[in-house]
Write a protein that binds this DNA or RNA. Structure first.
Lengths: 192, 192, 192, 192
DNA sequence: CTCTAAGCGAGACGGTACGTCCAGTCTTCTT
DNA sequence: AAGAAGACTGGACGTACCGTCTCGCTTAGAG
């Protein structure tokens, strides 16, 4: 009944994930159908349905597959520089058409499927957010930010505006903008 | 060829918008199809395609239809209290299942259709953001915030975290959280 | 809900029936799938399912479509000659690869679907059987066969062996064979 | 490459044949799939494909398995009575839902696969037909039927109408009908 | 009396067709 | 002319089986 992972064909799995990403970046979200993935991967549709709940899950796996397990943020001692680096990298991701397309796709799927949304959050985003939080903790320990700063909220203060601007196309997403957000955030948590 | 708005049947228009919203809140996003809208509204499909580009546009119109043209923010003189009121209202929207469902739906459509995204931003969200910006300007004039604060970014500092948390289901969306964001933001732009 | 025949597209209907027969004779029974019919006819699958219960019904209609409404048997006065002509024609049908293929196909469908079987019997075969019965009645009136001959059984005595031999591939189906069956049958009902 | 019959697992063979028949009588022809047979028999699909060409061959074997090797017709000296007994038995088979279901199934397979058809004819039907022919020969020797009667055709004159009526659902299949066919046939071959 | 090659249960695999659902277009008849 | 109704082509959906293929396990007979 339930498939046995031991028997799973690894090359089919890779082909499916690759096909999904290629379709997404080459032809756009509407072209990403289970049928198209199966055809491009040279795989039966059933093989997809056997291992994934739907195309959202496939895309998630495709993204998660080439992601490092642990994200380590640089800690140069210069908090402002480190955060700028992180946010500029995020801005770059949003600016890259391919990465932006995948993000858009996974966000659509996320919105339509709560369970998938939770997995996306936990497997794709949480590591990044946690890494930033860790960096903030070390800064707090170094007295560079207020001792009572609510670090989770601070993390969202950093990323929230970027996502907001990306989601709403509410202005250009540039390094300057990223720097500005870092500056505002650091001002918000500067030691008294 | 191009339809003549003068001949448009107002009651059909209303029925379509109502049907779209009802389907959305009663049966969820996947149930909102052009066919279902037409059937529930007692309308031919062509009547929908004649006046809208697709279901995204219908949903947008449905939402825009019961929105005030101009949003006026309270200006009690107490900036913190005014902003808290705004953000708490936003949190309440996200918490309400019906409103959240429509927001989710329009966001999906937005992500899949850039042109629609721009209209959503301009017609649904910009007024709100502009109103907050206006309030911030009056606060700046009153010397309650730094003269050089980049107000657009500040607005996004306020709303970004809320959207981020909603989008990512990254924690509870409560009044306390809204208040915390307001406090952080005000700290970021406090006069030196 | 139920489709309105008045709106039916006649050219699609014809294209579907033609495609079904062509596929059958060109590529054989296993090639006759709803998908193949739709593709060859340049028609959506739904259009087939809207008007027919399945491929059996399509094939039946295809066959029935180019069938005369009433079958008139020659009545030369020479019963033996007339019956030989009918049975030789039937043998010829079974010998013709195309006609045999369609007969085989409709028989398969018939066996798998009782309701369809009844329609095949009533629309395709009964007219033929009735015509032969009518000819027998005139022969009886002319005193050429026994007055108490059970005509329905006599009809089956004529056709049964042919179908039997075709179904079971139990020997060659030739004019000689047809003639032999006629002779035996006439001997069975010869006036005393 | 070619399987070695010596190593064949007899209990699997029996389980497969039994499963096929049970599925046929319990759930009808469409339920008889290789997968279903394998599942019910507790057997791998490969084991079926190793020993049979397809489900038609399985059903044939299932039927042939509980059939006597040689069929001996009673020869009471009373030809009419003996033939009536045979045809009444055949009618009874067609009337029995289970037997009729298997006959229907094997007929479908037969129509779709010529090679199988030949085997069905030779292994299932020929013995029966031959037995009747033998009985007719003894009757001919006894002078009960015409010396020049074409016995093969006479056999088909007996069985053909029954099969015809069964295949076409062209009237009730009763003992009376069987008797009528016997009478007609005997009249056809009565000594002059 | 072991070893080895076969048969075996299980079930994943690449495919094909199924019958359903919607999209977006087209047609007909009504208001 | 716009609208209600709905048939049309097209295409993706998720499911069911096909026939082939591997995977370990069991088992019989050749060494």
């Amino acid at each position: 009944m339930t498939p046995q992972p031991a028997r799973r064909n690894e090359s089919s799995r890779r082909a499916i994930l690759t096909a999904a990403l290629e379709l997404l970046t080459e032809s756009g979200y509407p072209a990403v159908t289970i049928e198209a993935i199966a055809a491009r991967a040279g795989v039966g549709k059933q093989t997809i349905y056997r291992w994934w709940r739907g195309k959202g899950a496939v895309i998630l796996d495709a993204l998660a597959d080439d992601l490092p397990d642990v994200i380590e943020l640089p800690d140069t001692g210069d908090l402002r520089a480190d955060l700028r680096a992180v946010l500029r990298a995020t801005v770059a991701e949003f600016a890259d058409p391919k990465l932006s397309a995948t993000t858009r796709a996974i966000t659509i799927e996320t919105l339509a499927d709560e369970e998938l949304g939770n997995q996306v959050r936990d497997r794709l985003l949480r590591p990044q957010l946690t890494a930033v939080r860790t960096r903030l903790e070390s800064a707090r320990a170094a007295g560079q930010i207020r001792a009572d700063a609510p670090l989770d909220q601070v993390v969202e203060l950093l990323f929230g505006p970027l996502y907001h601007r990306w989601l709403l196309r509410n202005g250009p997403l540039t390094d300057t903008y990223a720097d500005g957000i870092v500056d505002l955030t650091l001002a918000a948590v500067a030691p008294r």
